[in-house]
Design a protein around this nucleic acid. Sequence first.
DNA 1: GTGCTGTTGAGAACGATTGTCAATTTCGCC
DNA 2: GGCGAAATTGACAATCGTTCTCAACAGCAC
Lengths: 138, 138
Amino acid sequence: MTDTTPRRSTKQREAVREALSASDEFVSAQALHQALRQDGSTVGLATVYRALAALAADGEADALQAGGEVLYRACTPTHHHHLICRSCGRTVELEAAAVEQWAGRVAAAHGFVEPEHVVDIFGLCAECAARRAADDAR
Amino acid sequence: MTDTTPRRSTKQREAVREALSASDEFVSAQALHQALRQDGSTVGLATVYRALAALAADGEADALQAGGEVLYRACTPTHHHHLICRSCGRTVELEAAAVEQWAGRVAAAHGFVEPEHVVDIFGLCAECAARRAADDAR
DNA sequence: GTGCTGTTGAGAACGATTGTCAATTTCGCC
DNA sequence: GGCGAAATTGACAATCGTTCTCAACAGCAC
Ligand SMILES: [Zn+2]
Ligand SMILES: [Zn+2]
Ligand SMILES: [Zn+2]
Ligand SMILES: [Zn+2]
């Protein structure tokens, strides 16, 4: 993009970056804010939102929409997708050159330019599936 | 699914179904509501939301989240994905057995069960790309 | 028609996110 | 080390899409 991104380093941004890295699941801005306050930080909610948006814009975090809210996760800087447990949030990063190529090919075939794609898989991880099976058996 | 879906046929639901079919793009509940009022209908906004949710649940419509809101579209009843113009909303339905298999295979490989997936491609359709090029040239 | 129950519409309520703005902080520069 | 312009912050209000509440209403079986 047209990189007009002046960015200044502050305690708050660092705190958010760290808190985000501390979790290997996708988390909401609100959850991250609460976690930060819990740890004694005094960051404002708006600042957490701003910091996360900046991290996502800089490619330091991945964002995805789920259930009406946006979730963030510190991620590998290279392009990839996710396999996410819809119960516990456990996340696996996926790389699939075949899917990337398919997306580009399909877009081009229909005359579309500047293609972007959303590819995510949701499911129940083995642990959560086992737990649920146990619960179902009363 | 556990099909506990009592459903009664009403003018409003029919009106929403028709209005949705009338558009071959993805539309928001709000937009559909305005369109219906424009045509003299007196449906309430809440009813449009409820009708769309029901259609989606019955598999008569596809729903996707984009830009903080949920968009709906009357779609082919078989499983498929979409290529969407992020400017005009023009939509192409896509079928890609390879992607389906990849998703299932990847989920299984990581021990995940009940996999669902979100696969959408966004871009600029040829027309919108041309229009934007013209605009850029003042 | 009668009755039971799902449905509707208006408006309030809600939760996530963004905007506002004065006070504070960063950072290049003297 | 101190200055000053410009970016950033935090508390709060405001906005947005969506859901809830509830009394009036309309399908549908009898
Ligand atoms: Zn899990
Ligand atoms: Zn990709
Ligand atoms: Zn277009
Ligand atoms: Zn699919």
